[in-house]
Design a protein around this nucleic acid. Structure first.
Lengths: 339, 339
DNA sequence: GCTTATCACGAAAACGATTCCGTGATTAAA
DNA sequence: TTTAATCACGGAATCGTTTTCGTGATAAGC
């Protein structure tokens, strides 16, 4: 169709394909005169190297993959922007895959990436992910792998996370300071480490404040908003209803707003609410919503920069088995206020 | 590194590479017995075909690209989800690129996709995009191209859009019915067709209602939130301030909220507000926000389905030069109410 | 029994780029 | 002047598939 390749260029210029290739790659073996001839003609004919031929030879794709659970969650959309900023700088391409929190899908996606299609992978595991063989396979094949946010602790590579424990602790302390005695913790999964850390921070804050830890107040929610509505509704109409809610995920806080509205309750009078979220308009909600927000763009940029460094620098060291912790920030707003 | 290829399989099975290839592709020339042997061994050795070798032979990448202006805008994030759903079904891969509303970047991205890296392109043009040579190049190279939302009218292919004119008209009529006499229209660009249509709907509604059209009320905003804050602030503190605002983009409505709050004005009493937006929590804002929302998932799915059909079906017809119109929906909420 | 299909598979070319090896020509060293 | 480098380039192999063209063997048709 298009059909400008090295062979044609060589023919037109009366050179061998090897010479043209070397000229294009600025090899020292080619005279400046010839280089100029080749470059000029290449530009004139709008030559673009074939990525498959090159990929086949070099075993490099100049492509990385991002595997994330979901996009509707604002968090990942923002991280992607950060990542893409960096990859584009380096001339890399970015493939995006959603697992929809489904382990089987995660495995399938991973399987399709083991054949050289990508040079590196950045991922956030689904909250179903307990087995890790498929992730270990990536690692063992030597494909550079970075986790972010939802990490898999057992794979010895670099992981980017937020300080889940500290922020869980901090926001719980805040809720207690505002007068909460029974604080429920809403989460999607207890499997993934970020949830565990937030939960631990929450529990330690309770204990330190002399509040009883009630296992019945740690509520596992679902992926479906409808189901969550009912779960939260049941929670709030119980005679042992909590006076505070800490949501591990934005959408659980949203569902809480709807339940509260339908029950004609009042936030923050009857219930104080805080959530982990990167929503930009938390300020404009009614009432404005107390959030713990993560530095999303920085997240994406830092993780991508590390990966790009590994891929573009000769002899870059392997990733260290470490956690890079990016601090979250607590934004106190009306939903958790005393009055 | 991994190293399970057809040649190795062939060696182990005592067959020729060509036979193995045919067996894997379920060719009629291979006996069932041999097919089974090959398939079993391929599974056992975890064989994954090399995408570059295949791509080089077939001139197919099994990959499509999405080029969008921005991701922070909820709209595109949701469209991507729809697209990915379909592409994943067909075993296709999805590359994502952001132009950040920058024409030069758009051109660069396009240039990198002309060499066979992708089998098809779905895009929404940046609002800077006036020239269309780079888009025409895609078309002329025969790469299937679909536009959505922000389309380029002059390229003869299928475009997916919402009914901008009708919804612009409808929401303006609504604002007028709520008592607005001077309605401002906030937009990012007059170049792109979707803006033009919404604007036209707005103007026709004004005219039909006997309201004077004031060019000074059509306000061009910027990409930066800070600048927009000042623009809107100036607008609302003018002695000729509007009593209604229709925002073409969600973020302009958000900025309006902040300005109104800082000016200690009241929505909807002092100013009625409506916006094009796919925000899910418009309901929870203070006051709740009247929106015109697009069917984002359907958008992505329909456009992707058309593209997949073209790419996977033999002899699928070329895209017709037509506009596929997906209707938007007006959600009336408190921000535009009479009282 | 002989010709002709059909079957089941192998050998080799091709896709487009990179790179190892060679080689004639010029230059430098002795 | 001879020898050895260095330069500037060409030839051919290579990456892993798919596919065209064969080919020997078996089966079918007369």
């Amino acid at each position: 169709m298009s059909g400008v390749n090295i062979k044609k260029l060589a023919e037109i210029l009366n050179l061998a394909p090897s010479t043209v290739s070397r000229a294009l790659n600025d090899s020292y073996e080619i005279s400046d005169k010839t280089k100029k001839r080749v470059l000029d003609m290449a530009k004139k004919m709008n030559y673009q190297p074939n990525p498959f031929a090159r990929g086949l030879r070099e075993h490099k794709s100049k492509t990385i993959a991002m595997i994330i659970p979901d996009l509707v969650n604002n968090f990942f959309a923002q991280v992607i922007e950060g990542v893409e900023e960096i990859t584009q700088e380096h001339g890399y391409h970015l493939l995006v895959y959603h697992t929809h929190e489904n382990l089987e899908r995660e495995k399938e996606i991973v399987a399709h990436l083991l054949n050289g299609r990508v040079d590196g992978i950045m991922m956030s595991v689904s909250h179903q992910t307990r087995e890790t063989e498929h992730l270990m396979t990536i690692f063992e094949k030597g494909i550079p792998l970075i986790f972010f946010d939802r990490v898999c602790e057992s794979i010895p590579t670099t992981k980017f996370v937020t300080n889940g424990y500290e922020s869980g602790y901090e926001v719980t302390k805040h809720l207690i300071a505002q007068g909460c005695k029974r604080i429920a913790f809403l989460l999607l999964s207890r499997e993934i480490s970020i949830s565990q850390q937030r939960l631990k921070g929450y529990m330690d804050a309770l204990e330190e404040s002399g509040l009883a830890m009630d296992e019945g107040l740690v509520i596992k929610c679902e992926n479906s908003d409808d189901e969550n509505y009912h779960i939260i509704n049941k929670l709030l109409t119980d005679k042992q209803a909590p006076d505070g809610i800490l949501a591990a995920v934005e959408k659980l806080a949203i569902s809480t707003y709807y339940v509260v509205r339908d029950l004609e309750m009042n936030i923050p009078r009857d219930l104080k609410l805080a959530t982990f979220s990167n929503m930009k308009i938390a300020d404009l909600l009614n009432p404005s919503l107390t959030t713990i927000s993560q530095p999303t763009h920085e997240f994406g940029r830092k993780a991508a920069a590390l990966l790009m460094n590994k891929l573009t620098k000769k002899n870059a060291p392997d990733f260290r088995d470490e956690l890079v912790i990016l601090p979250s920030k607590l934004h106190i707003r009306r939903s958790s206020s005393k009055a």
